[in-house]
Design a protein around this nucleic acid. Structure first.
Length: 902
RNA sequence: GGCCCGGUGGUGAAAUUGGUAUACACGCAAGACUUAAAAUCUUGUGACAGCAAUGUCGUGUGGGUUCGAGUCCCACCCGGGCCACCA
């Protein structure tokens, strides 16, 4: 068969669209693929026609596709953005072609540290440089032909937008879920700000700048996310998230059911309460450890405790610590940062206080130690030491020669004596040395002992969480001002009326040792606009640079009209992204964050696509905020996102993170210039599984460029009157595969399937009919929208004006309701595949002997076992292996294989 | 230490979820077209043996279940991610 495509007679091209006619070189269809020209041409047209604008309240089924809106960085678009967006673009385009009313919006997440730091570096005010960056970003995005609905563009730094960010804050405040407290904050020396726990990496460094953070106490605004912990956990069952993401949120919330057990201290009226999740092992307790911050430690210097201390110091048995040793140890430990404590490794240190506590279960005396491995903010800040069944306790016991008692046996990992620490913990086992628990399994024993302790009044069941309240204030310029005003006069009036003891943070705030009432800005006074500050560098004093804007800070109190001052802290960069997906639904609304009717129509987001790095940040935060709004009756559903999918990172060609310092950054503009947007898009989808981290490959881009050029040649040269029947089957199969793969976000195999089909097309002698070629273009369209459109117009132009596909059928809705003036490929219906055509009449039947492939024969589809067996036994290759032996058993898999067992 | 992914050619990766392992792409080799280059096309490409037909081995390792295992079970090794002296 001939492979020389150029020998094919070019088709005469006439298009209804003047644009393509002028481009096609009038009558010649042979001209080379020139993405540069066709891409910008179609982008303009699509935008003019408003093809991608979603329609509120359309009768078509809605589909809300969401990508995480970008922070418009100065560096411009990253190829990683494109990987995620073009994949979701393919998804959105396919959904449109399937008759959905698709919303695929975009906007700008432009407040926050990165923007501020970039502005400082460039010496240009953020209010100036952010719009510049947005402009640059926008041009880059538009050159990719992504089908975003630009009519709904939003910007978190627009006061018409952040007015509602502030409004949400006020709702939290009114419900008592926004409050101020002195909290240990993570302080970044370099960025001169405090950070949320979620923004600090495991090694104690700031996720953005890599500086070691320090803990320091500061008055901060907090949002009570812990109140929603149980629902954030439970409702994960109602959404479709990748397991990895749900699991990570579960771990981060860290719900634990356990019990607080009280231990009386001998000789003084004092109790130490220890939290434990393993009360079943409590008969094995041999000591108690309190952290250096524990209240009991502070009391040791109290004179009441002295006589006891003096007495016990003379006791023998356990190496005693002197008062001086205790004081020194506590001082050293409390001065160490948490990071330093961890950095010292797991070698246990500690001092004995001289006191004993009583385990009321068995009357055992438990020496009370102080050690810095016990953390003040975890549990009750005190631990009951069960060295037989806890690794840290075991290490501590070994260090200070404390007794080790085993109370569980029979697990896989059990040994009669402990030789290695790893063998200490177990998941299953039976109780021993535990009186009434003996013989019970550990889980049963846990229940029994908890009931027992509660009944006796020695313990109280509690649930603890790893999640803590969200530190919501930043001492930075470039963020939403917190809409709060502090008023002296109001406090003077209010404090007299207050019957209950007032609480700082809840009722008043101390500024420069004076008490102020906390007055929320009235809703009608929103937005509290961010004032222009020429000097906006962080101060490093713990106060926001906004404090310098005297005219802005000093306001009259909305209550009493007296002299008052504004809160000067701003919100973290997550504030604007908490609810942005709601604003897309109604971006111009000045009465509410979005009209309820529109939210009713569009929510929840049907598919939300973003990075894994936001799992315990934005994704968790926004679920929390949304749930709060749901309780306030603002939004219609309890979860914002029905389905979440995450994409992998695109690394440099050297498999390292793309970075200027490595010189491995791929500039998407260059790729578009050289190969065209379609090639870039196809490559980024083809490069590998969507959720996997993959290194960039320039050769891979070439390959995809070759693919599109091949499509171009074939459509213009190998489209005739009839189709190769085998090829039709392949086409139907490809349609099926691509349809399914897009749905399950397997874009890489979808592209591979199309490549396979195109190869078959090239190899076939007969080629494709025009209508079959159109079908192929339809499934290509979501991946490479420009070339698909161009070829569609050219192929279609060869007929007498009527589109040949099913879209003209009267009962078929158009892909977009309002605009049907142009017969764009993107307004066609997604092709249905015909399973009958997809299945070839002939199949390859695999013949196995003892499960090993020995021969393959071509047989008719649907062959029965008897027939297959007969044919198979005729194969000489099979008889060679079977010999004269009669098969013991024959396994037949319909349309697949036959296996003889001898 | 906990939880979660993953390990398949020279490379990125496929495999209808227990039924032809390595689709698709890259790279490489040989060849065609061309004055030449680009572009395009053809053939080959898991390892070993063989001129070949073909055979044996082969999905991190070792066992197991099965007519049949990349896929399921048990034990282990290695790589990655998130969390973490979390009681």
């Amino acid at each position: 068969m001939s492979k020389n495509l150029d020998k094919y007679e070019p088709k005469k091209i006439e298009s209804k669209w003047p644009h393509s006619a002028t481009q096609s070189g009038a009558s010649r269809g042979k001209q080379a693929y020139n993405p540069d020209i066709i891409e910008s041409k179609w982008q303009k047209l699509w935008e003019q026609e408003g093809f991608w604008q979603a329609v509120d309240f359309s009768r078509k089924p809605k589909f809300y596709t969401l990508i995480e809106f970008p922070y418009p960085s100065g560096a411009g678009l990253h190829v990683g953005h494109i990987r995620s967006w073009s994949a979701m673009d393919a998804y959105a385009r396919k959904k449109r072609m399937q008759g959905y009313n698709v919303l695929y919006p975009i906007g700008w997440d432009a407040f926050g540290l990165p923007a501020e730091n970039y502005a400082l570096k460039m010496g240009v005010h953020p209010s100036k440089i952010v719009p510049e960056n947005i402009k640059k970003f926008k041009a880059q995005i538009k050159s990719l032909g992504l089908s975003f609905d630009w009519s709904r563009e939003i910007d978190t730094t627009d006061s018409k937008y952040y007015r509602w960010t502030q409004w949400i804050f006020l709702q939290f405040f009114k419900k008592g879920l926004a409050y101020q407290d002195d909290v240990p904050v993570n302080w970044c020396r370099s960025c001169k700000t405090n950070l949320a726990d979620e923004e600090v990496l495991a090694d104690g460094t700031h996720e953005r700048c890599g500086t070691k953070t320090e803990k320091r106490m500061q008055k901060q605004w907090l949002l009570r996310i812990t109140k929603y912990a149980d629902r954030l956990l439970a409702d994960l069952a109602t959404v479709d998230y990748p397991q990895m993401i749900s699991q990570q949120q579960i771990n981060w919330i860290g719900r634990k059911e356990g019990i607080d057990i009280s231990y009386e201290v001998e000789g003084v009226v004092e109790k130490i309460v220890c939290f434990t999740t393993r009360p079943d092992t409590n008969f094995g307790a041999t000591f108690i450890v309190v952290g250096p911050e524990h209240p009991f430690v502070k009391k040791l210097s109290n004179s009441k405790f002295q006589p006891v201390l003096d007495r016990v110091e003379t006791r023998s048995g356990i190496p005693n610590s002197t008062k001086e040793q205790i004081r020194k140890y506590v001082e050293r430990a409390t001065n160490k940062s948490e990071i330093e404590r961890i950095a010292e490794g797991r070698k246990k240190t500690g001092v004995f206080t001289g006191f004993y506590a009583i385990n009321q279960l068995n009357g055992n005396r438990l020496p009370v130690w102080i050690s810095d491995f016990v953390l003040g903010h975890v549990g009750t800040g005190a631990v009951v030491g069960v060295p037989g069944h806890d690794k840290r306790d075991f290490e501590f016991a070994k260090q200070f020669k404390l007794p080790v008692v085993r109370v569980v046996v029979g697990s896989d990992k059990d040994r009669s004596s402990i030789t290695r620490i790893e063998q200490v913990q177990e998941a299953e086992g039976t109780m021993i040395n535990s009186e009434f628990l003996n013989g019970l399994g550990i889980h049963e024993a846990t229940k029994v002992i908890m009931d027992h302790l509660e009944k006796k009044g020695w313990g109280e069941r509690v649930t603890t969480y790893h999640l803590r309240d969200w530190v919501f204030s930043r001492q930075h310029y470039w963020g939403e001002p917190i809409p709060i005003i502090y008023c002296r006069k109001c406090w003077e009036v209010k404090s007299e009326k207050l019957k209950v003891k007032s609480v700082e943070g809840r009722d008043f705030r101390i500024i420069n040792s004076q008490e102020y009432a906390i007055v929320p800005v009235p809703q009608e006074d929103l937005p509290v606009e961010l004032p222009y500050l020429a000097k906006y560098e962080p101060t490093g004093t713990g106060e926001s640079p906004l404090a310098l804007a005297k005219n802005w800070v000093n306001v009259s109190c909305p209550n009493c009209k007296g002299k008052a001052r504004r809160e000067t802290d701003t919100m973290p960069n997550w504030a604007g992204s908490n609810w942005y997906f709601l604003r897309y639904l109604d971006p111009e609304n000045s009465k509410a964050l979005a009209a309820r009717k529109k939210m009713d129509y569009w929510m929840p987001v049907d598919l939300y696509q973003g990075g894994f790095e936001h799992t315990t940040l934005h994704l968790l935060y926004s679920r929390f905020v949304y749930k709060f709004l749901y309780d306030a009756g603002v939004v219609p559903t309890s979860e914002p996102y029905a389905k979440r999918r995450a994409h992998g990172i695109v690394l440099g060609a050297d498999s390292r993170k793309m970075s200027k310092s490595f010189g491995n950054v791929v500039n998407p503009e260059e790729i578009v210039e050289k190969y065209g947007a379609d090639t870039l898009r196809v490559y980024e989808m083809f490069m590998g599984p969507f959720d996997r981290t993959i290194a960039w490959s320039q050769e891979g881009v070439e390959g995809c460029s070759r693919f599109l050029r091949k499509v171009w040649r074939l459509v213009l040269n190998r489209v005739g009157t009839g189709s190769d029947s085998e090829l039709i089957g392949k086409l139907e199969k490809t349609i099926e595969k691509v349809s399914e793969d897009i749905e399950v976000t397997k874009f890489n195999t979808a592209v591979a399937a199309m490549m396979e089909f195109v190869n078959a097309w090239q190899d076939s002698s007969k080629g494709l009919s025009r209508s079959d070629a159109e079908k192929f273009l339809l499934i290509l369209a979501p991946f490479a929208p420009h070339i698909a459109e161009e070829l569609w117009q050219r192929v279609k132009g060869t007929t007498s004006g009527q589109s040949t596909t099913s879209t003209k059928g009267s009962e078929n809705p158009k892909a977009c309701d309002t605009r049907d003036t142009l017969d764009s490929i993107h307004l066609q219906l997604w092709p249905k595949y015909d399973p009958k055509l997809a299945e070839a009449n002939e199949i390859v039947l695999v013949i196995q002997v003892n499960g090993r492939v020995r021969d393959k024969i071509a047989v008719e589809r649907g062959i029965d076992q008897e027939q297959a067996q007969k044919l198979a036994l005729e194969s000489s290759k099979v008889t060679k292996y079977l010999g004269k032996v009669k098969p013991k058993r024959t396994i037949f898999v319909h349309n697949r294989l036959i296996n003889f067992v001898v």
